[in-house]
Nucleic acid binder design. Sequence first.
DNA 1: TTGTATGCGTTATCAC
DNA 2: GTGATAACGCATACAA
Lengths: 346, 346
Amino acid sequence: MSEEGGMIRARATAEMVAQRASVSRVAVSRAFNPHTSLKPEKRELILRIAQELNYTPDRAARALVSGRSHLVGIIVPDVCSHWESQEIDALTTALQAEGFATLLFKTRTDYSMDEKLLSYMRGFNPDSVIAFVENVKPTTLVRFLGRAVPIYVHYPHGGSVDDAQPGPLHDRLNVLQRAGVEQAVALLEGYKVRRIAYVSGIGKSRANTARELMLRTVMAERGLPPPVVAPGDFSYERAFAATLDLFRVGKGADAIFAANDVGAFGVIDALRHELGLRVPEDVKVIGFDDIAQSHWKSYNLTTVKFDLDERVRALVRLILRRLNNPDAPALQETLQTRLVVRGTVG
Amino acid sequence: MSEEGGMIRARATAEMVAQRASVSRVAVSRAFNPHTSLKPEKRELILRIAQELNYTPDRAARALVSGRSHLVGIIVPDVCSHWESQEIDALTTALQAEGFATLLFKTRTDYSMDEKLLSYMRGFNPDSVIAFVENVKPTTLVRFLGRAVPIYVHYPHGGSVDDAQPGPLHDRLNVLQRAGVEQAVALLEGYKVRRIAYVSGIGKSRANTARELMLRTVMAERGLPPPVVAPGDFSYERAFAATLDLFRVGKGADAIFAANDVGAFGVIDALRHELGLRVPEDVKVIGFDDIAQSHWKSYNLTTVKFDLDERVRALVRLILRRLNNPDAPALQETLQTRLVVRGTVG
DNA sequence: TTGTATGCGTTATCAC
DNA sequence: GTGATAACGCATACAA
């Protein structure tokens, strides 16, 4: 293909390396697959020549015959939150270290793109797929995925119908929120807080419903009245507006849980800069996630922490174990949460 | 391969679709390539059956014969800043709409991974590669890339040796910072600011050096003394520390430029929460980028804006044009900057 | 409009 | 330890 001075350069092929090294194509292939048998000196020679010629095995061709693309698909919402960006980031670094490349796919949160997206994605033949949030229905995922291994991030909450299901159908990461939420509510009770509000995330998101339900459960166990819910969507802007409504239309609150840290920032800014209230003196604020900027001085947020590195390691473990043992029963990993106490409660 | 009840499901192949539709394999291939000739009813039938069987053409196989992987590699630093995250995000959405998937690769900013990374990446055969920042040397990129088309984000600054080069060697996006910086300096002069400081990004980063040099140039043109430079690395933490040094060890400043918005947040927090100074009354602050959270009330940052959407569109244009016309001379796009005035100057 | 034959670059199988 | 040969799933040139 056009290589007469154009900008597109030809790639070296195994054949060329073989010729230069006076060996067969097969030997070149073997040189790049450590587990095969090849005289060490021959392997060295081939690898040296390959480097000279800038040759790397073509993964598309390799995938065709080996059935392994070394691609991991990650499905994220149309526009990523900070948490998701940070997770993509860490996941990519971890996967790259294991020889996988991450393939990014965007979808809408309303399931409208599900089938089209998944067919599209399947064409790339990823070895595994991580469905981050609730952008893709599990049933659809399984139906359309073909060869790939789906990993699901799941938020169980004690006593829900969900856990009554006969075991998971696919590998998943269970995120247990109870510990962190209990610690948070206990802390607030210690400060004699009476009225607690919850600024929600996207209503049908499982991350959101699980958080709200857990908060509700823990509060009930402690004999507290249920939280007032102000509708948000995980964004700064909606949380900001919801907080204004809560105080201008509603009856306010002594403490506010936000469904995520970014929402908590919106809550704090609305309280301080629009409503003229002090945080934490007048109103206490707690978030979920513990993203990188939660410790920034302007917010210094008390939050229920999900350990990102731990989460990424768990996901990578799930992927590798499944790939090494395709027929194993469904795997699960569990992740705990805990409260990180900073300046917005006190 | 293992399909006896395991979790890995077989993928439908063109052969199966052909059999069910009583046509040849080739007809199936044609049905999925719109530009080929095929009786419409036949095409419809095939597509319907394909959908029933959950068949999608295998892109690895297709890439092998067509030379197009429909993969775009993006090289980003080991740990992404907000700007980069947002750009990856937007870029992925835009590319997906054009039928490309983004392949993410991480590298270090010290060039130490260059050759290994690029060989690794080349194996995936991306149709195009976007080198975001200065994580990969252009010469290395060209040498190791094989078939892919590199796109470079470049920051020219008038009068530098750089622009004396005989035209670009590869496609690139030129980001012109002058307009925004001029507006910023003019605004500060209007407030009679005397001592201006610059909290830098990573020293050898071209984004950083270009910004500093442009600031220096514009200030000199206006007869202002050169800015004091405090060393940062684009991070909140370093900018925070650099600001403390600037005021506790150094002689302080009336206005501070930060190399990026995140750094500006660090500057603001150090001023307000550690040094007890008011922004903008005591010290004015200006950032670069205009990331999503720059308009959050706690910071409400005045900043030199790089239009993300425009930038993404320009990059996508570059990629598509190059792919449609591989032998065209090097393409360039240009991006302007402008000042967005918010609350940290005034 | 349609089908047949060939090749893309690699690994797996089987000989030796 | 090594080399020939056959796949992998698809698109294209060519013939019909």
